[in-house]
Design a protein around this nucleic acid. Structure first.
Length: 258
DNA sequence: CGCCTTTGACCTGCGC
DNA sequence: GCGCAGGTCAAAGGCG
């Protein structure tokens, strides 16, 4: 099993904000040696500085959490694909070596290879009144078809990646039959290029708590596997331990909170 | 003019 | 073989 932290996010650090957020600024102000002898003007300046620092900190943390979420989501998809393979592989493939059916078998083999390409599903919550089938994910898509399917009154839109002509990735977008405010995007294949813009394609609104097809048991298995992967990773546990211990030390030396 | 969406026709797999 | 359903093609038209 591959590690969830096997990519560029190896320098993981956790910043646990336990307690009221305002204490952070208080701690910084006291650490900076600010006294009440400053004028009101200086106080306002200082306060805006502190707020700016806080804002920067929050922005950094937000970025860090987004990156962590990306990693977790990638791992989630990897696990789901693997689980899907495991559940569908046994006894499904039959051998057929008839020399008269080479062409047909070849096309069948290509189709099966196509079926084996990476498939991932993403759920995006949208405005229910919005009838468009557009999921913004950082890539450029060209719509090539739309169909009404039997199991869902909402039409399904078919997209191809139009950024690179050779890119094999396809995307299907359809509203959830249960919740019309949710767009379900199914990606097939992997991009052979980078995304169009700087926004991370994985930072879209991913609602992992509302899988559209998995059973609760299947969901639980995936959650357990993700938790297990996290718990087994020494960098994660080290970062978690240091963040907690650091925070506890700060709390014990910084006074009482209510 | 190029790229896009729309949409009906067509293709293909599958179950009966 | 037939019908159904999902997926794809391609012509037509819109838009910047």
């Amino acid at each position: 099993m591959e590690s969830i932290w096997n990519n560029e996010y190896s320098s993981l650090s956790l910043d646990l904000h336990v307690g009221p957020p305002s204490l952070l600024s208080e701690a910084r102000v006291s650490a900076g040696g600010i006294s009440k002898e400053y004028s009101i003007h200086d106080d306002e300046h200082k306060e805006s500085d502190v707020l700016e620092v806080e804002l920067n900190e929050v922005s950094k943390e937000n970025k860090r959490l987004s990156e962590t979420l990306c990693t977790v989501f990638e791992h989630y998809n990897s696990l789901r694909n693997r689980l899907h393979d495991l559940m569908s592989s046994p006894g499904k493939r039959k051998s057929c070596d008839s020399p008269h059916e080479d062409g047909r078998m070849e096309s069948k083999r290509i189709r099966e290879e196509h079926k084996a390409t990476k498939v991932s599903r993403v759920c995006v919550r949208t405005d229910p009144s919005d009838t468009s089938l557009i999921v913004k994910d950082g890539y450029q898509w060209r719509k090539y078809g739309q169909k009404v399917t039997r199991d869902n009154p909402s039409p399904r839109a078919y997209y191809r990646c139009s950024f690179a002509p050779s890119c094999p990735v396809k995307k299907k977008v359809q509203r959830s039959a249960e919740d019309r405010s949710i767009l379900v995007a199914t990606y097939e294949g992997e991009h052979n290029h980078s995304s169009m813009n700087s926004s991370n394609p994985m930072t879209i609104a991913v609602d992992l708590t509302r899988p559209e097809v998995e059973s609760p048991e299947l969901r639980q298995v995936m959650v357990d596997q993700m938790a297990s992967s996290l718990a087994k990773d020494p960098r994660f546990t080290d970062a978690l331990a240091s963040a907690i211990s650091g925070r506890i030390l700060q709390l014990s030396s910084g006074g009482n909170y209510n």
